[in-house]
Simulated assay, not measured.
Amino acid sequence: MTEWLTREQALERLNIRPQTLYAYVSRGRIGMKPDDADPRRSQYRADDIAALATRRDRGRSPQAIAESAIAWGEPAIATSISTVLHGRLIYRGKDAVKLSATATLEETAELLWASDRPVSFASLTPSAARQSGTPTAFARLSALAAEGWSSLGRRPAMLQQDGAAATSALATALGATPGSEPVHARLAQGWSVEAPGADLIRKALVLLADHELNASTFAARVAASTGAPIAACLLAGLATLTGPRHGGAGAAAIALVEDAERLGADEAIARWLAHDRPLPGFGHPLYPEGDPRAESVFSGLEIDDGLSRLRKAVLAATGLHPNIDFALAAITRSLRLPADAPFRLFALGRSVGWTAHAIEQVTSNRLIRPRARYDGPISMG
């Protein structure tokens, strides 16, 4: 068997439509690369196709299919908000990387929310809290959630207002100064960042706004399916984002960089891998050829020597490319932002996506309630 197959060969061996082949590629289940003879065409990894064909031939029970959908499996929820296709992040039909060249987070919210009016995250009331950060963000959203209206039976425009209010509160809690300017400018003011850095923050927020059905977005949709207030849906997303396998990856990437500077890149990589720890900030199942969000950030950022050496060493040792978490670590170091800036940027940007998905879930009028496959003991007494 050859290492790479043509599109026609892949379709024939799997007996699938082109759309299904592209879906497998976008989810990282089939590797793809440009054809050396004709870069306009693509080739597909034969081993991945053979493994998929074997699983299909064996057949799978409904229970096994349902279980596999939970972790990078088949699509489980229909959405028109975003997707990853052919290694590109798409926001309602628009390339997110291209959008991030000029758009603000507010303009991105208008797109993702399908709003018929401009979105504002203005906050004209001075913050009563002396400190900003994750604890303050949780406190603000908790207060809004406790006082919020149920999302059921309300028009999307009203839910959008709730989402804008929650995101505005989240922005000031995470360090943005009060004002009516775009939220990236106010965040830059709060962090004493000059105009070029503010534009980099703007781009990062847009690129982080949504990412299909990730863990925090799924949590927000589950909350929305019960009719919870929009602020409560964002709170569910924020809680999920705190995990080290999600929003905490940016801090872990900074730790890896610091280890590399102290021990040397090769030694740091070897130690992380020896302890069975994946390298934070590198690789992504949906972007086998590299995360375009990270590359977009790098285009406007001068990476320091420590980051550059680590990036090259990881590629040489593992073949993995940087992802958005590594890019957030690079922004944090370059602009001398607070140590938890990767999480703050992630939370603020993704609040727009959480709101979009919460509204979409509410308007679908469906409860998300999967069944569990019980494998514990059963008492017959």
Rank of each mutant, 00 (worst) to 15 (best):
G283F: 01
G283Y: 00
G283I: 00
H284T: 04
P285R: 15
P285W: 12
L286I: 13
L286P: 06
Y287S: 07
P288K: 09
P288E: 08
E289Q: 15
E289V: 11
E289L: 15
D291S: 09
D291E: 09
P292T: 10
P292H: 11
A294H: 03
E295Q: 15
E295S: 14
E295L: 12
S296K: 10
F298A: 09
F298D: 05
F298K: 08
S299M: 14
S299L: 14
S299R: 15
S299Y: 11
G300K: 05
G300M: 09
G300H: 06
E302Y: 12
E302F: 12
E302H: 14
I303G: 05
I303F: 10
D304H: 11
D304Y: 12
D305M: 12
G306Q: 08
L307P: 05
S308C: 14
S308H: 14
S308G: 12
R309A: 15
R309V: 13
L310W: 05
L310K: 05
R311Y: 08
K312F: 11
K312P: 09
V314A: 07
L315D: 12
A316S: 15
A316W: 11
A317N: 12
A317G: 11
G319S: 08
G319Q: 09
L320W: 04
L320N: 11
L320Y: 10
L320P: 05
H321N: 12
I324S: 04
D325Q: 11
F326R: 04
A327K: 01
A327D: 03
L328C: 13
L328Y: 02
A329D: 03
A330P: 03
A330F: 07
A330T: 08
I331C: 05
I331E: 00
I331S: 00
T332Y: 01
T332M: 02
T332N: 03
S334F: 11
L335F: 09
L335V: 07
L335N: 08
L337H: 01
L337Q: 02
L337P: 00
A339Y: 13
A339N: 12
D340W: 03
D340H: 05
D340I: 02
D340A: 07
A341V: 05
A341W: 00
A341L: 04
P342H: 04
P342E: 04
F343R: 01
F343D: 02
R344Y: 03
L345F: 03
G349N: 02
G349M: 00
S351L: 02
S351Q: 01
V352P: 00
G353P: 01
G353D: 04
W354G: 01
W354C: 03
W354N: 01
T355A: 10
A356H: 06
A356L: 07
A356K: 03
A356E: 03
A356I: 08
H357E: 04
A358V: 06
A358R: 01
A358Y: 01
A358T: 06
I359C: 06
E360C: 10
E360T: 09
E360R: 10
E360V: 09
E360H: 13
Q361I: 10
V362P: 02
V362I: 15
V362L: 11
